[in-house]
Write a protein that binds this DNA or RNA. Structure first.
Lengths: 240, 240
DNA sequence: CGATCGATTGAGCCCTCTCAAGAGAGGTGG
DNA sequence: CCACCTCTCTTGAGAGGGCTCAATCGATCG
């Protein structure tokens, strides 16, 4: 609950274009909080009491349907804003946010959002950029689900995760947080069984190396080619 | 290209919370333009020169993949804002906007957006609400595509269109603009053949009445039940 | 009145899901 | 430190929902 060191967060997109003083004033209203692995930051349907910036760790946002199926909406990397329900006119969180790592967040009371944006209009334009990017990504996902097969979708999903949260390791790029087959399935609209079969296949071809909640991309470029390949493309039709 | 009558557009969400004077000042920068049925308001990839409010008619926003498939991103109803690429940090339009009806739009140069938001910060917060709602809807779509079968998805899509752009007719609610099987397919991630089969089935059951680019929901409530029904749900398992 | 565009419908296939077991890894408590 | 338990992952077999391919019909428009 101590005050936050400005130097650690001043560069974040949410605070682009603020002077040190302005930034300090905004930061004074935040508190820092820690969430242990697998604990919820907030729950879907709960009143949207706060909005957040992730300082360290990784957070998964997922929606649960009335019938109990879960869909992963996104993974939040450090520096990103999340839980901005109030800013987009929602009284309640539309998804559940869970720390997949031990994570540290900055939290502002939603109640102070209106006053903050009034005093610092750039907060609104910065948030608009953030939400706009999320919209873009979600549209990309809809397009993929509409036009691509499961294997291509999984490849795209892993490549995006690697770009956002990849860590260079000896034999490639490792996704820098625990992620299960089930998680990947819920990101791509398929089942954990199909994801498991796909990863097993890739492993045999040397494209990835994976294990329990752990995925390393050994050949990102080959995966990218695979992601862009339309399935019936390997054998060009022969003109008789 | 005449100046616009404020009384016709003052109530729109984009302008919520503005005085008549402020509103007039914003409106002076807009021009009105008409687009005939099937003409593009702007094209995907084109420089984002303007942003728009739809006054009359209907506009379809769709994305084209590198391989040529099209996916319908949304339908714009009158009063709604679209083409706000600049506001969310894009230099180019991420989709193509096509008038599906004869349509009339208000257009502002994207270049004036920064100055307008600086002078009228509420523009940013109003746009944030709009973009936030789009994000919500797109997430709903991802969840549906991940968890529901085609028939349920089509039912949900038509119910949403009817709610947004429905017109009461003698035998039900008609979707108030020309919409083909192909369009519905591109909204739900399926093929026009499957949509055709589904609508034929519904027609026989008296749920809809449809024809060339025309769909009437005769029994919205029954459709809603169908949309929420999980396929294997009809026969409760018998305990031996 | 011909031409073009949208809708319908059949046949067959295949990608992916469902159902079912089982094995391995990791954590925990005695 | 070992036994046990739980969670994750793997893999096979079979079924089916929806796609592809193909042909025809009907309606709207110039």
């Amino acid at each position: 609950m101590a005050t936050v060191d400005p130097s650690l967060v001043a560069h974040l997109p949410l605070f682009a274009g603020f002077s040190a003083d302005e930034f300090g004033e905004i930061l004074r209203e935040a508190r820092s909080a820690r969430f242990a692995k697998n604990n919820a930051v907030f729950q879907q349907g709960e009143e949207a009491h706060s909005f957040y910036v992730l300082q360290h760790g990784h957070v998964r946002a997922s929606k649960t349907t009335p019938t109990g199926e879960q869909v992963v909406v996104r993974y939040v990397a450090s520096g990103e804003t999340f839980g901005v329900a109030m800013a987009i006119g929602l009284q309640r969180y539309p998804a559940t946010a869970t720390a997949v790592d031990d994570s540290v967040v900055l939290a502002w009371p939603s109640a102070s959002w209106p006053r903050l944006v009034e005093k610092f209009p750039a907060l609104a334009t910065n948030t608009l950029q953030t939400v706009g990017s999320l919209l873009q990504e979600t549209h990309t996902r809809v397009v993929e689900m509409s036009t691509q097969q499961v294997e291509q979708r999984v490849a795209h999903a892993l490549l995006r995760l690697a770009k956002q949260s990849g860590r260079k390791v000896e034999h490639g790029v490792e996704i820098d947080f625990p992620i299960s087959r089930q998680d990947v399935a819920q990101m791509t609209g398929t089942t954990l069984h199909t994801v498991s079969r796909i990863l097993s296949g890739w492993e045999q071809r040397g494209l990835v190396e994976s294990g329990r909640q752990r995925i390393v991309l050994r050949e990102p470029h080959k995966l990218f080619v695979l992601a862009e390949t339309v399935p019936g493309d390997s054998e060009p039709p022969v003109k008789p």
